[in-house]
Simulated assay, not measured.
Amino acid sequence: MSEHETEHESATGTGFWADGRHAVNVGQLVMGLAFLGLAAIWAVLAADVLDGDALRWLLPMPWLVAGAAGLLATTMGAARRRGGSR
């Protein structure tokens, strides 16, 4: 896209930024969710809400949730670029 086209789109209010959305960086989304999940697990274990035996099933959860969010963001972005579902 040239500089002239970008100026035209911003002047007319059309284009990528007109609807107030921007592209999602899927890598940052996944790693951010994984970090928040691991921090939440640490907080729960530090507060002695759960014991160390819960780690066996608790530690994979942030990675599964973050991966599912990444897959969802990827498929939603691809569907939006194609023009929606057919």
Rank of each mutant, 00 (worst) to 15 (best):
L64V: 03
G83Q: 04
V49M: 06
R86K: 09
E3C: 10
G37A: 01
T75N: 01
G27D: 02
M76F: 13
S85W: 14
V49H: 13
V24M: 01
G32C: 05
A73N: 14
R80G: 07
W17V: 11
R56E: 14
W57C: 00
A43M: 10
R82Y: 06
R56K: 10
G37H: 11
G15E: 12
P62A: 06
L33A: 00
S10I: 12
F35V: 01
E9C: 05
E5S: 07
E5R: 10
D19Y: 08
A34V: 13
G70P: 06
R80T: 09
A23N: 07
T6Y: 00
D19Q: 08
D19A: 00
E3N: 08
A39F: 08
V30M: 08
A43S: 13
A18G: 08
G77R: 14
G83R: 07
F16K: 03
D51Y: 06
L50D: 11
T74C: 01
H22G: 09
L71M: 14
M76I: 11
A43R: 15
D19K: 03
S10H: 08
G27C: 00
L29H: 15
G84W: 12
F16H: 05
A79Y: 07
L59W: 05
A11M: 06
M1C: 00
L38F: 04
G15K: 11
L58A: 03
F16T: 02
A39H: 07
A78E: 12
A78Y: 10
V49T: 04
D48F: 03
R21S: 03
R81N: 04
L55I: 04
R82C: 01
D19N: 13
L50R: 01
A47F: 06
V65Y: 10
H4D: 12
A23V: 06
G20Q: 11
P60F: 06
L59I: 12
A11Q: 15
L58S: 01
A69C: 12
M1L: 05
G77P: 05
H8V: 09
A79S: 11
L36P: 05
D48K: 14
F16G: 01
E3R: 05
Q28S: 00
L59Y: 00
H8C: 07
L33N: 05
R86C: 02
Q28W: 12
G77A: 02
V26K: 09
P62D: 04
R56W: 13
A40E: 13
L72R: 02
G20F: 02
S10M: 09
A18R: 10
V65G: 03
A69N: 08
R80E: 15
D48Q: 04
G52K: 11
A11S: 12
G32S: 08
G13Q: 13
R21W: 03
W42F: 03
A78T: 13
L55V: 11
I41C: 07
R56F: 15
S2L: 15
R82T: 02
M61Q: 06
E9Q: 12
W42T: 02
R86T: 01
T74F: 12
W42M: 06
G15M: 04
L58N: 03
